[in-house]
Simulated assay, not measured.
Amino acid sequence: MIEFRNITLQRGTHRALDSVSLTVAAGTICALVGPSGAGKTSLLRLVNRLLIPDSGTVFVDGVDIATIDEVQLRRRLGWVVQEVGLFPHLSVARNIAMVPELLHWPQAKIDARVDELLQLVGLDPAQMRDRAPRNLSGGERQRVGVARALAADPPHVLMDEPFGAVDPLRRSELQRDLIGLLRRLQKTVLLVTHDIDEALQVADRLALLRDGSLVQAGPPASLLLAPSDSFVAAFLGSDRILKLLALHPAQHLVEPGRAVHPIATDATARDALETMLSLNVDEVALGSGRVTLAAIRAVAAGQAGG
C-alpha cells in the first residue's frame, strides 16, 4: 500500500501540492490525472524521495518512508518513465540486471531472471539479451524498461507517462500487455498520465488533481457517473457516458432471449450500443443470450452491476 497523508509541497512561491491525502491499496493500479502543472509528477516523486514534502507523510506498506534508508527504499520501488532511460552503453541484459547486480545476486540467478523477465514482457531472450538500446524500437525499449523495473521483484511500481513516447499505433497493445502483466503480478502501481482515456482503461482508481489539490478520487466509473464539479466533468469530457459504457463488458448485461445480430464475446456495452445504432435495432446477440438497449441505458444511469 502507498499512502499520502496531508502532503504539502512548496516550490519557491508556488504551492505544488496542498494538503493532499490519498491511499493506493495494495495490488491496485491508481492513475494520477489532471492538467499540466496539477502536481501529478510531484506526488509520484515523493514516493522514492526524489522530492521531500514540506509537511505531511508518505507511507509505503504502513512505514513512514522518511525512516527508511533511501537506497533500500528505492530498491523496493520499480520506476518506469516516458523515455525509459536505458543506459546506452549497456546491453539489454545488463540494463535489466542493474539492481540484481547491486544486490550481489549470483550470476546464474541474474541470468535466469533476465531471461524470465524478457519472456514476461513479450520479448525473445535469445534475440534481445545482447542488443544495444539504440537498436530497439520505442515499444521494445519500453518493454525492457518495465523488465528492468521488475528485476528485483519490487511490490510497488511507479510509472511516469510510460507510454507517452510510443507510436500511437503500438500504444494500445503496449498498455494492454504491460499493465496486464503488472495486474497479474499483483503489483501496486502509481501511474502518471495526461491521457484520460488511457487512465480510464488501465486504472482501478483515478486521482484527479488541479493546482496541487486533490479534486476527486475513486473508481473510474464513479467519476464518470458522478463528477464532483464542473471541472471534473469538463476534464472527463462531454462523452463521459460513452467512456463509461466502454468500461463495461457486454457479457455482464446478457439476459435470456434470442437476437439476430451477434457481437463479439469481448465486446463492451459501447460496442453493443454502436452495433444497435448502426443496424437500427434494440438488441444484439451475445453467446446464448442477448443484450438489450434497456440494459445499456441502465448502465448509463448507474443502475447496472458488474
Rank of each mutant, 00 (worst) to 15 (best):
D153I: 06
D124N: 14
E173M: 15
P125D: 11
L118V: 10
L208N: 03
S213T: 12
A108H: 14
Q186G: 03
V189I: 07
D160A: 09
R134Q: 14
L209E: 00
R134T: 07
L158F: 06
Q175N: 07
T193P: 14
V157Y: 05
L150I: 01
Q107E: 14
D197A: 11
Q107N: 00
L136S: 05
R170G: 11
V202I: 08
Q175F: 06
D111T: 13
A165T: 12
A199F: 08
L150S: 10
D124C: 12
D160T: 12
A112V: 01
R176F: 02
L182R: 00
E173Y: 13
R134W: 08
L208I: 10
I196H: 07
Q119P: 06
R183C: 10
R129K: 08
A126Y: 12
D153Q: 14
L191R: 10
Q107L: 08
R113S: 02
I196A: 06
Q127T: 04
G164Q: 05
D130V: 04
R184D: 10
N135W: 11
L206Q: 01
G122P: 06
V166E: 09
A203L: 01
V192Y: 07
A151W: 02
L174P: 10
I179N: 05
P162Y: 11
L209H: 13
G138Q: 10
G122Y: 06
Q186C: 03
R183S: 03
T188K: 12
V189R: 04
L136D: 11
L120D: 14
D115H: 10
R141M: 13
L136R: 10
G138I: 02
L117H: 03
Q186P: 09
G212Q: 11
E140R: 00
R183K: 15
V202C: 05
M128I: 02
R148V: 06
Q119V: 14
D177P: 08
E173T: 15
D111A: 15
I196M: 01
R141G: 05
L191P: 09
V192N: 08
D115I: 09
G180L: 03
P133G: 12
I179V: 15
P162V: 05
L136V: 01
S137M: 08
L117N: 00
L206W: 06
L191V: 11
L123M: 01
R131M: 13
A152P: 00
G212V: 09
S172E: 15
N135V: 02
V192S: 10
E173L: 15
P133M: 11
P155M: 13
L214K: 00
Q186D: 13
V146D: 04
V144D: 09
V121Y: 07
V114C: 11
H156G: 12
G122E: 01
S172V: 14
L208Q: 07
R176H: 15
R134N: 01
P162G: 08
P168M: 08
T193M: 01
R113F: 06
V189D: 01
Q107K: 15
L208A: 09
R183Y: 01
Q119D: 14
L181K: 03
A112G: 08
M159C: 11
L191S: 02
Q142S: 09
L150D: 05
G145Y: 05
